[in-house]
Structures are given as C-alpha cells and as structure tokens.
C-alpha cells in the first residue's frame, strides 16, 4: 500500500459517501444519472467476486463491502425510494448504457491476462468502469449547470483515478514485474474522460460562478 493508493481509495470513498449523503439527507437525486450508478454497481459486483475466495487484508475486504453496499444502496434509493425516485430526471438520463456493457464484455473475452471466469469478469469490470461515467457526463451537459454536490461527486471520482495513476507509477518503480497494461490503459482512458469536466469545473471555481458546461 502506498500513499497514492490510500489517498485514491479515500477519495473514491468520499465520492460515494457524498452522493449517498446527498440523496439520503435532501431526499433528492436531481442531476444524478441512475445509469451511471447502475454501471458502477455492475463494476463492483463483477470486480469483487473474489471477496469470498481471496483475502488480502481487512482493509481490502472492508472497502469492497463498503463500495458494494453504497453503490447498490444508491441504485435502490434512486429506483424505489418513494420520495427520491420522483426527483430522478428520467427524461434527461437517456444514455443507452446497456450499449456500453456488451462491447466491454466482448472486449474482456478478447483481451485479458488469463482466460478464467473470475479474470474475464474482473477485466470486464475494468473496461466498464472506464466508461461508466459517460451517462453522468452526458446528463451534466444536458442539464447545463449542476448543483455543487454532483459536481463534487464527479470531481472526487476524477481525483481517485488520477491518484491511482500515481499509484501505478510508484508501484512500477518499486515492485519488480509490476506491469499491467490492461489496468493502466483502461484507467488512463477513464481519467481522460474526466479531463474536460475538470477544465470546466476549475474554470467555474476560478470565476466563482455556477458551473456552466458547454452544450
């Protein structure tokens, strides 16, 4: 474990807690894409299948349970909670996210490190995580401006990915054989998707005005 990865995990944890607290306290999910949350639930479900078969540390197992629990809670809140689901922006959140799932599954069947059930699903979760934010970014573009909690959510997610890249650089230089192209490339693609959002987010902070994303 290194400081970059710990900071990355904490930033990731903060992002899901910000979202969960927002939805739980103000009982609203306005501006949040249910499609992105569903994709993240699938990402965690397919990535943490090894939670029962391999144990790395208390920290690792605990964090997996937290991410699984929070992502599924957010989806259930948005879909079924009597008050929250009314604030879900169904008409605007129209990204056909199932069109992302199939290509990621096919790609995982083609490109993976080992052709085993767990490994292919784990690789699928990497590819899916890379594109899971797309429905949320599209929704932000559509609704033009965003409330600052959703902005903070996306900002923290981007920060977690950036810190993970620093973690991979650190591990590459400190651990022999630490070469994982699949993880690195999908992680890089994911981080680049946040790049333009970061630009507009930083602009809105600098000019201290409401975040307006270009159409």
């Amino acid at each position: 474990m290194n400081i970059f990865r710990l900071a990355g995990d904490m930033t990731h944890l903060a992002s899901v807690l910000v979202l969960l607290l927002k939805i739980h306290t103000i009982k609203s999910c306005a501006g949040v894409s249910l499609k992105t949350q569903e994709l993240y639930a699938i990402v965690f479900a397919t990535r943490y299948l090894d939670i029962f078969t391999s144990f790395y540390s208390i920290y690792n197992t605990l964090m997996k349970l937290v991410f699984l629990g929070s992502s599924f809670s957010i989806v259930l809140y948005m879909k079924y909670h009597k008050t929250v689901h009314r604030s879900y922006d169904r008409e605007q959140d129209t990204f056909r996210h199932w069109f992302l799932v199939l290509p990621c599954l096919l790609l995982a069947l083609l490109i993976h490190e080992k052709f085993t059930f767990l490994e292919v699903l784990w690789t699928f979760s990497l590819y899916l995580e890379a594109v899971a934010i797309l429905p949320q970014l599209v929704l932000l573009q559509r609704t033009r401006n965003i409330d600052n909690l959703t902005g903070q959510y996306v900002f923290l997610l981007g920060g977690y990915r950036g810190l993970y890249i620093l973690n991979w650089i650190y591990r590459y230089f400190t651990e022999p054989h630490f070469v994982h192209w699949i993880t690195w490339i999908s992680g890089l693609v994911q981080t680049l998707l946040y790049a333009d959002f970061f630009f507009y987010y930083s602009q809105s902070w600098k000019n201290n005005k409401k975040l307006q994303l270009p159409a």
Binding site: Y56, H177, H180
Partner: peptide
C-alpha cells in the same frame, strides 16, 4: 505470481 499483485487493488 506477478499477475496477482494487481488484485490487491480496489
């Protein structure tokens, strides 16, 4: 052994 060391990441 080496490919396992990425699985300890979240």
């Amino acid at each position: 052994e080496h490919e396992e060391n990425i699985k300890d990441e979240l």
